[in-house]
Design a protein around this nucleic acid. Structure first.
Length: 315
DNA sequence: GAGCCTTTGAAGAAT
DNA sequence: ATTCTTCAAAGGCTC
């Protein structure tokens, strides 16, 4: 019973055997310590995902140092001990697994990531995406997460691909009342606060991939954006991109026009170099049908508004 | 295995 | 102050 004092047991409560295999014992005490969890699964290939219900949210991650390969031997030893004692009644020295400090510093989304990617040892992942501290989810992301499964269960949506579901949920999000949205903004706020608490040093720029070439091209800034042109009082007339504080649709089209115009004029050196509106008008449809030209049609209302009120300036 | 697609919001860089 | 890019989630798809 008392593992500390029995001459036939070692410091971790395992019976001493005459066979010389001390190396099968775990390097650290695995039971009867604060912050440790009992193994309730009588399975020597104990699956850590089964631990999830044992650990109270929000922090239930798998320890970074807990590697199933290196601990399997210890697990087997513990399981055999458990089986032996359980034959004569309820075991008093149930093997425990550590609930490491590392787990307590992880946020729910990291935990999700680890559990969903199996029992990989993060130390072996060589700083892959899964290993870094991720951004806290914003309100819309929380909404997506919350409703993806619901929508995929609805009639007609089960066959939808992920991006089709996102499109639909994006549409539903826009139709959501402010009150309904507020719920998710609150959740996002909490998520953000928890994230900041856990990772005070973390910054969104930490997650920027330095190897990814930057798309930002100042030369694309060819005219005033409809947002800047119309002002806050005419917010209803902004294009959807300005509303989202993204690259304005006007800017998108103008940069295409500018690009194509430059290509044309480069090939037609004899032509007058002055800007003309004819090339501008034809370019979007002349160029390959991309998102910009497609969006142009759907955004014609917004564009008309901005063009009616002075139109974009081209330098 | 990496990257794309698709959505909105937030952060931060660039101007 | 404004504009723009990137990244968060999901999973099927392509290379």
């Amino acid at each position: 019973m008392d593992s500390k004092q029995s001459p036939t047991t070692n410091r971790v409560g395992f019976p001493q055997t005459s066979s010389p295999h001390p190396q099968i014992l775990p390097p650290l005490p695995l039971n009867l310590l604060p912050g440790m969890l009992p193994i309730t699964q009588y399975n020597q290939f104990y699956n850590f995902s089964r631990m999830a219900p044992m650990i109270t949210p929000p922090f239930l991650p798998v320890p970074a140092i807990f590697n199933m390969q290196t601990n399997l031997m210890a697990m087997q030893a513990m399981t055999s001990q458990l089986n032996a004692t359980s034959q004569s009644g309820f075991p008093t020295n149930i093997p425990m697994v550590p609930f490491p400090e590392a787990m307590k510093t992880m946020s729910s989304f990291q935990i999700d990531t680890i559990l969903s990617t199996g029992q990989q040892d993060p130390a072996n992942q060589n700083h892959k995406k899964e290993n870094r501290i991720k951004k806290p989810l914003n309100a819309f992301m929380l909404y997506l997460k919350d409703n993806r499964k619901t929508i995929s269960g609805e009639n007609g949506y089960s066959e939808m691909t992920s991006f089709e579901i996102n499109k639909e949920l994006g549409r539903r999000w826009r139709e959501l009342s402010n009150e309904e949205k507020q719920k998710y903004f609150e959740m996002a706020k909490i998520e953000k606060e928890q994230h900041k608490e856990k990772y005070p040093e973390w910054s969104a720029k930490d997650n920027i991939n330095p190897n990814k070439p930057k798309k930002y091209n100042p030369a694309q800034k060819v005219g005033k954006m409809c947002r800047a042109q119309l002002g806050e009082e005419n917010k209803s007339k902004w294009c959807q991109y300005c509303l989202r504080r993204q690259k304005c649709i006007v800017s998108r089209i103008l940069s295409e026009i500018s690009q194509t115009h430059n290509e044309k004029t480069a090939g037609e050196t004899s032509n007058d170099s002055t800007e003309n509106s004819s090339s501008s008008k034809t370019t979007p449809s002349d160029s390959s049908p991309n998102q910009v030209s497609i969006t142009l049609q759907s955004q014609s209302g917004s564009l008309t508004n901005s063009e009616k009120e002075g139109g974009p300036e081209i330098d």
